[in-house]
Nucleic acid binder design. Structure first.
Lengths: 107, 107
DNA sequence: TATATTTGCAACCATATAGTTGCATATTAA
DNA sequence: TTAATATGCAACTATATGGTTGCAAATATA
């Protein structure tokens, strides 16, 4: 099984999925699948697959209501990516300690 | 062609590539391919492919010296991931404005 | 010079991924 | 009740991905 961080990174590595996710975030409300797929050129089933990947990564939540399935964005898991990045931040942020001082602290 | 951000995200979405990259970062020095591959269970050619992906994403630089090819980590492109994340940060950081205020500003 | 080391290239394999279409089913509306 | 809508499931396709092995070429060492 893939790790959580791997699932999240793979989910956002696809440009179409990033678009879907972003659309859901700015919509700021749950949207049924057909409505989402109406905004994209690919088929509904293609969208459904992407939604599944996003759901597995925890980036969206899906709730069934009647015949519809409402998708809601949940950006919280992106915190994990942010945390992963944190270590490397020192390399582009001059205000942070650089690598050599990290290595010094480790020794 | 894939966008820069897509290349970077795909590069770090693979756990083996994250490991290779991290090893090069903490090594803080250029390492020849054979030396890198010695630290992993997969074949040298497998490593070479991963290095190519990392190089295409700009996350490592490779320099030939004699028969050896020295790989050096370059975390700078991760800044792009950081920038992409920035927009969603408000959802996990309470000190930032929330989505509704973003939407208000947009209106 | 002969040998060992480092590497690239090419072919190959299995599986994952991104997409499609067709059809059945459940729910809602006329 | 009949028709329209929203969805899932399954099969299929093409290409990408992560890995392997064998071999040739370039460079360094004995």
């Amino acid at each position: 099984m893939q790790s959580k961080i791997t699932k999240i990174l793979k989910a956002i590595a696809d440009p179409t999925r990033r678009e879907i996710f972003h659309a859901l975030v700015v919509a700021a409300t749950a949207m049924p699948i057909t409505q989402i797929s109406g905004q994209f050129a690919i088929s509904r089933q293609g969208i459904t697959k992407h939604l599944k990947t996003l759901e597995d990564a925890g980036l969206i939540q899906i709730q069934t209501k009647g015949r519809e399935r409402f998708c809601l964005a949940d950006p919280l898991p992106l915190q994990e990516v942010n945390h992963w990045l944190k270590f490397y931040e020192r390399f582009w942020d001059d205000t942070l300690q650089n690598l050599s001082s990290y290595l010094d602290n480790k020794a």
